[in-house]
């Protein structure tokens, strides 16, 4: 893993958003992860490196009353629980903050778990970029 340590944001450090970009390799396929850390919420885009599309987006948050995790798909297929929604709910449960997730990768039953495992590893290793 290589890291570039240049920070590229200006304004009030307490308020300014933090963004990052990383690449995951599953077999010979490349996936791009983009994250935007805001105040109390995180937005994440995951998609094939080329072409990088935006087709789906979901949001999940924890209800202040009972702590229940509520998620919904706001862009893309609404008929069933999307990968974006599932991941948004999972990250909200894990990190305790609102998550917007846009999952745009073409995966099958073989690559999906591998990609998810690498994404989890990436987030664990770079936790400060997400929360």
């Amino acid at each position: 893993m290589t890291e570039e340590n240049s920070t590229d944001h200006c304004g009030d450090a307490n308020k300014a958003f933090t963004s990052s970009q990383g690449q995951l390799l599953v077999g010979d396929k490349k996936y791009t992860v983009r994250s935007l850390k805001m105040n109390g919420a995180t937005m994440m885009f995951l998609g094939s490196a080329e072409p990088e599309c935006l087709d789906e987006m979901a949001v999940a948050m924890q209800m202040p009353q009972d702590g229940q995790i509520i998620g919904t798909t706001i862009l893309g297929a609404q008929s069933s629980i999307t990968d974006s929604q599932r991941l948004a709910e999972q990250f909200t449960r894990r990190y305790g903050r609102q998550f917007f997730v846009s999952f745009n990768a073409q995966v099958d039953r073989m690559t999906a778990p591998l990609l998810e495992k690498q994404l989890n590893e990436y987030m664990r290793n770079n936790k400060d970029l997400f929360v």
Binding site: T7, C10, G11, K15, Q21
Partner: peptide, 24 residues
């Protein structure tokens, strides 16, 4: 598996004052 991490994840990301209010 992870090949690179960059600290600027989008084409443009900036913070500026619009009408005197900090805007992302």
């Amino acid at each position: 598996c992870i090949s690179s991490v960059k600290t600027n994840g989008f084409n443009k990301q900036l913070s500026c004052k619009i009408n005197g209010v900090e805007t992302e």
